[in-house]
Simulated assay, not measured.
Amino acid sequence: MKETNFEVYNLITLFLDDDEIASLGRLVTGGDADIRHATEEEGVELRYVYYLTMPLAPARRPPFPTSAH
């Protein structure tokens, strides 16, 4: 499943236990200083990546015109 999600949807799937979910939650809600500290502890490069997304479905069409009476 992990490989399929990446190959088909370009999504990374994480299978996390309770402690890992808690750690991810702290990382996501942490401030800049917390994130910088965590990356320094782990020895990883900090970089910002921006994703632009759009809906997968086409835009909603306006209703069909009704006949004038």
Score class of each variant (00 low, 15 high):
residue 1 M to I: 06
residue 1 M to R: 11
residue 3 E to H: 11
residue 4 T to L: 07
residue 5 N to P: 01
residue 5 N to K: 08
residue 6 F to K: 09
residue 7 E to W: 06
residue 9 Y to G: 04
residue 10 N to Y: 08
residue 10 N to D: 14
residue 12 I to K: 14
residue 14 L to E: 02
residue 15 F to M: 11
residue 16 L to W: 10
residue 16 L to N: 03
residue 16 L to C: 12
residue 17 D to M: 03
residue 17 D to S: 05
residue 17 D to W: 00
residue 20 E to N: 02
residue 20 E to H: 02
residue 21 I to D: 10
residue 21 I to G: 01
residue 22 A to L: 01
residue 25 G to P: 02
residue 25 G to K: 03
residue 28 V to H: 09
residue 30 G to E: 06
residue 31 G to R: 07
residue 32 D to K: 04
residue 33 A to M: 07
residue 34 D to F: 07
residue 34 D to Y: 07
residue 34 D to Q: 09
residue 34 D to V: 06
residue 35 I to K: 15
residue 35 I to V: 15
residue 35 I to A: 12
residue 38 A to C: 10
residue 39 T to D: 08
residue 40 E to K: 15
residue 41 E to F: 05
residue 41 E to K: 14
residue 43 G to W: 05
residue 45 E to T: 15
residue 45 E to G: 05
residue 45 E to A: 13
residue 47 R to F: 12
residue 47 R to V: 07
residue 47 R to L: 09
residue 52 L to W: 03
residue 54 M to V: 06
residue 55 P to M: 10
residue 55 P to V: 02
residue 56 L to V: 14
residue 58 P to D: 00
residue 59 A to Y: 05
residue 61 R to T: 09
residue 64 F to A: 15
residue 65 P to D: 11
residue 66 T to A: 13
residue 66 T to L: 04
residue 66 T to I: 03
residue 68 A to E: 11
residue 69 H to K: 02
residue 69 H to S: 06
residue 69 H to W: 00
